[in-house]
Computed example of a mutant assay.
Amino acid sequence: MLIRLADWDRIRSGEVTLQFRRWKRPTVRVGGTLRTSQGVLEIDAVDVVARVSRAEAVAAGFPTVKALKSTVDGREGALYRISLRFVGEDPRIELRSSSEVDGLVLAEPAVALLRLIAAHPGVRAADLAEMAGREKLPFKADVRTLKAKGLTESLRVGYRLSPRGEAYLRTLDD
């Protein structure tokens, strides 16, 4: 679930507590968390709605219902109201800036992926996947696994190794 960058400070402060999306099926679930580069959100409710009140539009960061609807109208699926709250910073940020890799063991395919990203920082996922002879979506899922371990960072385009990822590769080269 993408959240407008302009909403993040207001989500952190608790001023924005709702988001609205049109989905064929929800991509978040009640009780789940959404880990993003801006922080971690807890999902408190996910409901299909037929109408949006002005108060709900304001709670979603919009001045009017019309402004909110302009972001969801014309898209397929039911209209969902998602109640959320900020619960903390992204734990991957601290992890990736660490050079602590004791006990971390990766399978050879993951090591190969790290080496590929190290050799081609800032290259689009589709291009990296092609270089690796892989489909893009499974490739990106594997990169997310490395990111969760604090080994890579997403760039505006592509990826790069984090300091922890660089430290891990150095242990292999020793």
Rank of each mutant, 00 (worst) to 15 (best):
I11E: 02
R25T: 14
E166N: 04
Q19H: 05
K24V: 06
S70L: 12
R160G: 00
P121N: 06
E42R: 15
D73L: 07
L104D: 11
F62R: 09
E100A: 11
G31P: 02
L114N: 13
K140S: 08
L41P: 04
L146D: 11
I3T: 12
V28I: 12
E15W: 04
Q19R: 10
G133E: 03
A110H: 14
L116H: 11
A125E: 02
F139N: 00
K149H: 14
R25H: 12
A167V: 03
G158E: 00
P163L: 02
G88S: 05
D7T: 04
R10D: 04
G122A: 10
D47F: 15
I43L: 12
P109Y: 07
Q38C: 10
A110S: 15
D44F: 15
A107V: 09
E135P: 03
A118C: 07
Y159A: 05
M1W: 00
T145W: 11
R25N: 13
E76Y: 11
V40N: 07
D173I: 09
V16N: 01
L2S: 08
I93M: 10
R160K: 10
G122M: 08
S70Y: 03
P138C: 11
G74V: 12
V28R: 13
L79R: 06
E42Q: 13
R29T: 14
S97G: 07
L79F: 08
Y159D: 02
R12K: 13
T145R: 01
R134I: 03
G165Y: 02
F62H: 13
R134W: 09
H120P: 01
V58T: 09
G133K: 06
D9Q: 15
V65C: 11
P163I: 06
W23P: 09
M131S: 03
A118P: 05
T64N: 01
T171Y: 03
V87D: 04
A132V: 07
T64L: 02
R51T: 15
L84Y: 06
T27C: 09
L116A: 07
V105I: 15
K149Y: 13
T71E: 12
